[in-house]
Nucleic acid binder design. Structure first.
Lengths: 206, 206
DNA sequence: GTCTATAACTAGATAGAC
DNA sequence: GTCTATCTAGTTATAGAC
C-alpha cells in the first residue's frame, strides 16, 4: 500500500514537491481561487517570482496535484483489487482502499474532487478521463458480483456513484486525531456497502 | 413539499431574488472566489454599483444563499419526517426528501456544501449550527430504529455521516435531462440505505 | 433603483540582477 | 535557484448624478 504514504519524505523533499504540498494544504483550506500566489509563496518563505522558476503558472500547480493524486489513487485501487479473490472480497478491498486513501491523503483527495471546476478545459479532460477509469473499476466489481449471483444491484451505474460519494465524503470530515482511526472507518464502510448490495439482503419493500 | 419548488416564481421575482438566483448559478459553476462581482452584474445586465444597493457585500450574497437553503432544507426535512410513522418509514421519508431536495435544488445545495469555507467566521458559525441540527435529525432516526430493534447500526454517528455523504453526492452529478428522474434516484437510495441498516441484513463478516 | 466614474487594493506573471 | 522591482489587469466597494 505504498500510495497511502506521502509521495515524498517530508525531510528532504525537492523544491517542486514542497510547493505542491503547501499548495495542496492551501487549496484544500481556501480553494484554488481563494489562494493567491503571494500567499503560497509566503507559506513557503519564498518570493512569488521564485515559484515561477518551478512551475510556469498557478494552473499548472493545480493540475500537477490532481494528476499525481489520481495516478496514485487508480494505481493503488488496481493493486488492492488484484490482491483479492471473488466478487465480495474484491469489493471489500476496493472500498477499504478508497476510504483509507481519503483518510490518509485527505487534502490531496479533497482538492482532487473540489477543484475540478478550476482546471482549464484541456487539463479537465485529462483528469476526468482518469476519474472515469477509476469509477469503471467499481462498476466492474458490481457487475461481476451480479453476474456471479452474490450481489443484487438493480442499477450498477447509480450504485457505483452512490458508493463512491459515500466513501469520498470521508475526506470532508476525517481528522487525524479523531475518534476513529482510518482502519476502523474503512471497516464500517465496507460493512455498510456489502450489506446494501448483498443478494441475501431484504428485497425492495419486503 | 413546498421547499422543493424554487423559493420565488421565475417570472416576477424581486430584485434580490434575481441576484441570489444568478449568484447561485455562478458560485456553483466557478466558485465564490472564482466569480467576480462584475461577472455577476453582467449576467444580470446591471452595473456592479447596482448590486450594492441590494446587498452590502459579495459575502452577504453568499451567506443569504446558504442561510435560506439550509432553512428550507431543515424545514422540509422536519415536515417529511413528521408525516411518517415508525423508524423505518421515517428514515425512508428523510432519505427520500434529502435526495429530492439535492436533485430539484441542485445548485443551491451544491453551493451550500462547497462554499462553507468561503464564509466569514461569524457566518460560518451560524450556518454550521443549522447543518448540525440537520445531521442530528438523521442521528435521531437511526437511534430510534436501533432502540426499537428494527435497525442494526454499530456506530450511529458514523453511519449518519455516511448516509448524508452518499445522498448529498446527488447534487454533484444530477442532471435534469438525465437517465433517471429524481423520484427514481430517491427510491434507489432509500433501498440502498434501508438495506444497510436493517436488522435482518447479514451480520459483520458472516 | 440604476447609472458613470473612480478609489484603493490585489491578482498572476515577467525582467533581469545576483 | 532566489531575489527586487514592476507591469498590466482585475478585484471589491463607494460617491454622487439622475
Amino acid at each position: 500500500m505504498a500510495t497511502l504514504a506521502p509521495a515524498t519524505p517530508k525531510g528532504d523533499a525537492v523544491a517542486s514537491d514542497r510547493i505542491l504540498r503547501a499548495a495542496t494544504g492551501l487549496f484544500c483550506e481556501r480553494g484554488y481561487h481563494g489562494t493567491s500566489v503571494r500567499t503560497l509563496a509566503r507559506v513557503l518563505r519564498l518570493e512569488t517570482a521564485s515559484l515561477y522558476y518551478h512551475f510556469p503558472s498557478k494552473q499548472e500547480i493545480l493540475f500537477a496535484i490532481l494528476d499525481r493524486t489520481l495516478d496514485d489513487l487508480l494505481d493503488g485501487l488496481r493493486r488492492a483489487v488484484a490482491a483479492a479473490d471473488g466478487a465480495e472480497q474484491r469489493l471489500r478491498a476496493a472500498v477499504r482502499y478508497h476510504v483509507l486513501f481519503h483518510a490518509h491523503r485527505r487534502q490531496e483527495a479533497f482538492v482532487s474532487h473540489s477543484e475540478l471546476r478550476s482546471l482549464t478545459p484541456g487539463h479537465l479532460r485529462r483528469v476526468v478521463a482518469k476519474r472515469d477509469q477509476y469509477e469503471d473499476v467499481f462498476r466492474g466489481l458490481l457487475t461481476a458480483g451480479v453476474r456471479g449471483g452474490v450481489f443484487q444491484v438493480p442499477d450498477v451505474k447509480l450504485t457505483a456513484a452512490a458508493i463512491l460519494s459515500m466513501c469520498t465524503g470521508v475526506a470532508l470530515w476525517f481528522s487525524e486525531g479523531g475518534r476513529l482511526a482510518p482502519e476502523a472507518i474503512a471497516g464500517r464502510y465496507v460493512e455498510i456497502i456489502v450489506r446494501s448490495v448483498d443478494r441475501r439482503g431484504k428485497g425492495p419493500r419486503s
